[in-house]
Design a protein around this nucleic acid. Sequence first.
DNA 1: ATGAAAGCGCTAACAT
DNA 2: ATGTTAGCGCTTTCAT
Lengths: 344, 344
Amino acid sequence: MAANIHDVAKLADVSITTVSHVMSGRGRVASATKERVLTAIADLNYQANIHAQRLVSQKSRTLAFQIASFTQNSNSTTLIPNSNYFLEVLNAASNEATRREYVLLILSADVDSSLMDRYGIDGVLIIDPRGDEKIFQTDSHSDWLIVTNGRTVNELTSRIGIVDNDHRRTTRETLMHLREEGYERPALITTDLGRSYTRDLADEYQDWCKEEGLAPIIVELPEPPTQQAAADAARKILARRLPPDAILASAEDLALGVLHAAQDQGLSVPKDLGIVSAVDSSVLLVATPSITAVYLDPETIGIRAVDMLISALEDQAEFPQKAIVPSELRIRDSTMRRNARGET
Amino acid sequence: MAANIHDVAKLADVSITTVSHVMSGRGRVASATKERVLTAIADLNYQANIHAQRLVSQKSRTLAFQIASFTQNSNSTTLIPNSNYFLEVLNAASNEATRREYVLLILSADVDSSLMDRYGIDGVLIIDPRGDEKIFQTDSHSDWLIVTNGRTVNELTSRIGIVDNDHRRTTRETLMHLREEGYERPALITTDLGRSYTRDLADEYQDWCKEEGLAPIIVELPEPPTQQAAADAARKILARRLPPDAILASAEDLALGVLHAAQDQGLSVPKDLGIVSAVDSSVLLVATPSITAVYLDPETIGIRAVDMLISALEDQAEFPQKAIVPSELRIRDSTMRRNARGET
DNA sequence: ATGAAAGCGCTAACAT
DNA sequence: ATGTTAGCGCTTTCAT
């Protein structure tokens, strides 16, 4: 059995208080005794029992990481959808949590809050929220601190922090880039417009169309995003009398689907059709042609979100709070029409 | 503040023992009092404090989920590599854990065990092990139960369970399929042969070559697997005097890299070159041509692994234990040479 | 059928 | 500088 604090105290011939002091660095302990205690700790391979510590402190140093569910109602829920973005946010968040001596619990976004209560969680990270999730309701009786990367129904409460990109700004940047490259009729293919970031995309796209006097073409696909669904959608809008000459897709798989559809139809990308993904991913680099995308800096999102949450938990910061992480349009072959390869 | 067991006892006018009995279903409680207690619990929205329970029970109902690290030495470690397989194992494992009222902690595979101790973990799942990870050492002083999906240095201890596919069998099946399709010189491109499953692939491949009187061509690439590295490797071996006419790749990204290389060189797949991925993934379906792959049934791996671990933890099963999950070759266009599309 | 009390391993206020 | 002690919220043995 593992040694406990009494074993250490006995071996070092001190009280358990002293052992506790040595371990935590609080209180004053003579360096001689400190040495003795340290030796005892090492000898016994002592580690404080985490459950006892948590019971006393009423803190668990545990954060829940949730990705707002794609499939609202199903038994076997998908914790983590197959996307680079999520993986990178998660990896970064986890590293940061570990660094701060916190633990990340990956929870399905549709576990009910009574279950979440049972896990003894200090705070919650919610990625890609719709904003109307139950947990955001102010009257939700458990009130963990929450950090999300998108808008919520109620941003004003002292329980919520936001770390987001400026999706509207980069969407505009993207549309300007397309115009510069000579594309005149951009369309938008997106999943569920309920999500915070897809709404941003659509809003900015519509504003742009109004300003430019364009008729907006928006296709909203059911989640989760699949290449197949995007390809079908693309084929449909490309068959119009006045087809779009560029497509902005809200996710990597949608962009890839569009690419396949275009190629199937014998359209040249970027010459006949420009393609942009609103979320960058490693697969877009190796597609042929490589696909222009918005880099959202998921690592930074993950790190800042964890930081914001922990700071608030440790009373070093106050909620509500909002941070914007810079994003960046990464121009690749799929939209480089003016000097496309092999066109001199 | 949340109500505790005393609050409930007071409200129901019973002792805390009775409340505890009602909650756990142990002991005998008159149905009248039971009702009273239940009402009090509902009124106060009472949930037993999990830290107190864990302190008493010395169990945490928490499992660590680790993917054996790709990058042995780096600060910012990748928890979950970008692969369908891992994601599906994880999602399935997590659902199963939740169903059994356990919690999954995603941990970097290179946290040292003292840190793992601190998390109060009951058992560990290790995916794609090399087998020589520190944690497998019998003298490792903490002795959680471990379940992995691959061979370990020491399978004999009572701490280890294995849930694996029969990689050697499906590798042989794959090679037989290639031969049937008329491929005569299969090559193997793989990452780190240290991993349990890559070693299986390579061993079976070499046995096959010996039996068939073929000169084996094995390329071992550094981890993590990238399309770029695979493409380079493929170009190199395809430039040989006697190039392979089929390539078996140990991961989805390697297969895709090979496909790109082949297409760059003007080779027709499957006509000039057959391609197989030893791990199936959704992207292989949408590649053009679609790529033949081995379906390892990651969902079942995840579920069985969690089940095995929990059963052992709850003394319903004994270690060591081993289970084989059926895998299946999924033949697609990339190896259908005999009646390839457009060849009548 | 119900309750009193000990104890899980620790922290922190309060002596000394 | 070090020790005593009272909790933290629960489970469980043992009385009644």
